[in-house]
Design a binder for these strands. Structure first.
Length: 424
RNA sequence: GGAGAGGUGGCUGAGUGGUUGAAAGCGCCGCACUCGAAAUGCGGUAGGUCUUAACGGGCCUCGGGGGUUCGAAUCCCUCCCUCUCCGCCA
């Protein structure tokens, strides 16, 4: 949710900022609704005031033993008017909210202009893609050779975009998650959290997935109380702060969680249909930070560095790109994607996405901190980043570590998590 | 799943229809006393929103939603959650 004060004071600035991410904001429609809301609200409140003071007077008159009938007669009218005014106001507020909750976050000034992936800007590269004296296979072929990546069984059990992993590869998958968790808790100071994988609609509203992106989620009809499978642990982790007022000395607060993620990927038919790049279910180690507003951009750099550190330890070449306005997610003000080198695709592919949402999610979920300078609760800033997507990381380890004979070299840092094995 | 008890401010906890957004205590902040601290005394201390240059003022909020009433923390309906006992279970 955007800051409503800003929206009222300077809607043109909001329109211009949103235009940078390709969103068209109808200033006039907003202005009309907002004026209507203002008018109805003051009308309603005046009537409520009349009701309150009359009721109070009736109480006092009764106590004093005076007649209350004249006051009751006056109230008969006010009651009807108030009911009508309240209904009109509620309807207007509903339309206004419906409009506001569709608006994506404003891009930070450092976010490059552009509409698509092609306009993202590379920030840096680490290491160089490995040279092979044979034609590198992709992970699907490598998984076949090792017998551990079983897409047929995944399809048999659950349909397309599900996988069964076995033996060494299942073990490697588990090792990667453990390895990442240990790094972030021990080296980067994150607080480890185990979260529910089913959450209420309110939580998804807080982080911005609902109401706009319901089609991308799996929904469980649970009597009258629907639950959704989390598309990322960002949802439960960030919502831990929902409705809370944190003290300044508690910030920054960093959470890490390993969880499965469930995405119906409604809009992605035909993309990445081969292999496990795009699955309905995948594991991820997620970082979330809650920070003071003046610290959030420094925190974004730190967090991106934390994700990069995992790839460095695994000796996987990558690059970091700044997403352009048009490629950013709904809630993000600025996003760095980390793209790992995949020899099987001869390309860099996204393995992490680190975003600062500033106060966008915090306002939706009322996550606040007490600003010592004002003494008031103010929205804090929330950040989230994958560190990393475990499934895609597995793909990267397989493809980058492959040998001509189909064996896979296990990165040294990971070997302690694999019983000391050097090869898969 | 069965039976019962509850959900009130940062916390504990009073409040069963009328100046109660809410007693009291704890905590926190300020002031006084003190060389300083403790103890003590006095005062202050929920959130949201609208309005105002500011002071201030209006409205909303006592788990969520709905209802009764001139008026609801208080009565009714409904949902959610917590606790205790029993059953079941990893």
């Amino acid at each position: 949710m955007l800051d409503q004060k800003l929206l009222r004071q300077d809607p043109e600035a909001v329109r211009d900022a949103l235009a940078r991410r390709g969103y068209v904001f109808d200033v006039e429609a907003f202005g009309t609704l907002e004026a209507q809301r203002r008018e109805l609200q003051s009308q309603t409140e005046a009537l409520q005031h009349a009701r309150n003071s009359h009721s109070k007077a009736i109480g006092q008159a009764k106590k004093a033993g005076e007649s209350v009938q004249p006051l009751l007669d006056e109230m008969a009218q006010v009651g009807q008017q108030l009911k009508e005014a309240e209904e009109k106001l509620a309807a207007t507020q509903q339309s206004l909210t419906a409009l506001l909750e569709q608006l994506p976050n404003l891009p930070h000034e450092s976010v490059p202009m552009g509409a698509t992936e092609a306009d993202n800007v590379e920030v840096r590269r680490w290491s160089t893609p490995p040279e092979f004296d044979f034609k590198p296979r992709d992970h699907v072929d490598l998984g076949d050779i090792n017998g551990g990546l079983d897409f047929a069984s995944g399809a048999k059990l659950s349909g397309a975009r599900f996988v069964v992993m076995r033996q060494g590869i299942a073990r490697l998958h588990r090792a990667l998650a453990q390895f990442m968790l240990d790094i972030h808790t021990q080296k980067h100071g994150y607080h480890e959290v185990y979260v529910p994988y089913l959450v209420k609609p309110e939580a998804l509203y807080g982080t911005g997935q609902l109401p706009k992106f319901a089609d991308d989620l799996f929904k469980i009809e649970n009597h009258d109380h629907p639950l959704h499978l989390i598309p990322t642990a960002e949802v439960p982790l960030t919502n831990l702060a929902a409705g809370e007022i944190l003290e300044a000395d508690q910030l920054p607060l960093g959470y890490v969680s390993h969880s499965p993620c469930f995405r119906s990927e409604a809009g992605s038919y035909g993309r990445d249909t081969r292999g496990m790049i795009r699955q309905h279910q995948f594991d991820k180690v997620e970082l979330v930070q809650l920070t003071r507003p003046d610290d959030s951009y420094a925190a974004l750099e730190r967090m991106t560095g934390h994700a990069e550190f995992v790839l460095q330890q695994l000796e996987l070449p990558y690059r970091v790109v700044t997403l352009c306005g048009g490629d950013m997610g709904f809630a993000a003000a600025k996003t760095y994607d980390i793209e790992v080198w995949l020899p099987g695709q001869d390309a860099y592919r996204e393995i992490s996405s680190c975003s600062n949402t500033e106060g966008f999610q915090a306002r939706r979920m009322q996550a606040r901190w007490r600003n010592p300078e004002t003494g008031k609760p103010e929205p804090l800033h929330t950040l989230n980043g994958s560190a990393l997507a475990v499934g895609r990381c597995l793909v990267a380890v397989l493809e980058n570590g492959q040998q001509a004979d189909g064996r896979i070299a296990i990165p040294q840092a990971l070997q302690p998590y694999m019983d000391g094995r050097e090869w898969l």
